[in-house]
Amino acid sequence: MNLRFLHIVERNFLVWRKLMIPSLTTNLADPLFYLVGFGFGIGSLVGTVNGRPYVEFLAGGMLCYSTLNSATAEALYSAFSRLKMQRTWEGILHTPMTVADIVIGEWLWAALKAVLSGSAILLIMYALGIAHGFRPLVVLPVLFLLGLCVAGLALVMTTIAKGFDFFAYYFTLVLTPMSFLSGVFFPLQSLPVSVQKIALILPLAHAALLSRGLVFGDDIPHPVLSLLLLAVYGVIGVAVSVRIATRRLHR
C-alpha cells in the first residue's frame, strides 16, 4: 500500500503548526462560550432533557457539531483555496504525487483537524465537570469517523466548485438543515415524526446518538448501523471527489 498521501497531511500539518496558537485558542474559546452561555443559560430555563441537565445534553451534541464545522471548513474553504487560488494541488501534480494522493491526504487531514476541535470540547467538558473518568475518551475515534464522513462530502463540493460562492448552496441546503434536524441542540423527539424520519439519513444525527451514548452511557439504538452510515458517506464522498478532481486537473 502506498502512503504518499501522508505527505499532504505532513504539508498541512506544517502550515497549521505556524498558526497553532490562534487556531487552538479558537478551538477552545468558541465551545467554552457556547457551553457556558447556552448550556447553563438556556439550561436554567429548560431544566433537564432526557433526565439529565441540558448542558450535558448540549455538550454531547456540541462534540459532533464542532467536529462537523471544523472538518467542513478545512475540506471546503482551505482545500478549495489550495486547489484554485494558490494552485497548490496543480503544482504538486508535477511531482510523483497523484490526484488520489492529494485528495485522500486532504480528507485525512480535515478529519484529524476535526478531532482536535472535538478534543477541545471534551477538555472543556472535563474542566466544567460535565465529563468524568476515561470512558468519554472512546468518543474520539467516532469523532474521527464523523470527520472523515463530513470531509468526504465537503470535498465533493470543493472539487465541483468554480468559486467560493458555490458553497453557499451547501450551507443553506445541507449543513444548516442538518444542524437543526440532528438532535444537537434539542432532542429529536421534539420534532414532528415525519421530520424525525428524515433525520435517520443524516450523519450528524447518528454521530450525536453515538456521542451521547459513549460519553454519558445513554442508549444507542443501532450502534453498528450508525457507524456504518458514517463510514459509507465518507468513503463514497472521497471516491467521488477523487474522480471529479481527476477530471478537473487532468483536463
Binding site: 505527505h7 494558490q86 503544482g91 504538486i92 508535477h94
Partner: peptide, 30 residues
Amino acid sequence: RYRVGVVPQFDNLDPDFTVTENLVMWARYY
C-alpha cells in the same frame, strides 16, 4: 516524473511556506 523537473508558466510556489520550506516540502513529495 521522478526523473523530471517542471517549471510551470504560472508560479505555483506554496505561499504558506518560506523559501526554504518550499524546497524541503517539495523534496518530500519525491
